[in-house]
């Protein structure tokens, strides 16, 4: 299971708008390849990204196969309380990749 990597700025002031950057290793493929040739349709891509901040949903993305391999998303949150930002990537094969980061002042 690959890991979600999340980055936030090192220093955060209360009330500041913070950019959160999340990255997951995922092939985002539509075709299964064997020896460089497509062999069958294999819809395996991240179709949903959800972010919560202290349990409140702050961001959601519906992504498609047109998002690059190893999908990267950045979004903003208003850091008004210390807590945990959790980002979950769901793929079409039913797997979920989860990562979290703590916001401290």
């Amino acid at each position: 299971m690959s890991q979600v990597r999340i980055r936030i700025p090192e220093k955060i002031k209360p009330g500041e708008i913070v950019t959160v950057r999340a990255l997951v290793s995922h092939p985002m493929e539509m075709m299964a390849f064997k020896g460089g040739k497509p062999v069958e349709r294999n819809y395996n891509f991240v179709h949903k990204v959800e972010a919560t901040y202290n349990g409140r949903k702050v961001f959601e993305a519906a992504t498609t196969q047109a998002v690059s391999q190893n999908p990267f998303v950045s979004f903003t949150i208003k850091a008004d309380a210390p807590g945990v930002v959790k980002v979950v990537f769901h793929d079409t094969q039913g797997k979920a990749y989860e990562g979290q980061v703590e916001i401290k002042f």
């Binding site: 993305a61 998303v73 979004f75 903003t76």
Partner: peptide, 14 residues
Amino acid sequence: FSFTPDSGKAAVGT
């Protein structure tokens, strides 16, 4: 991409 008022600002990169 869907935002809520809690997002503070609508900014996204991918």
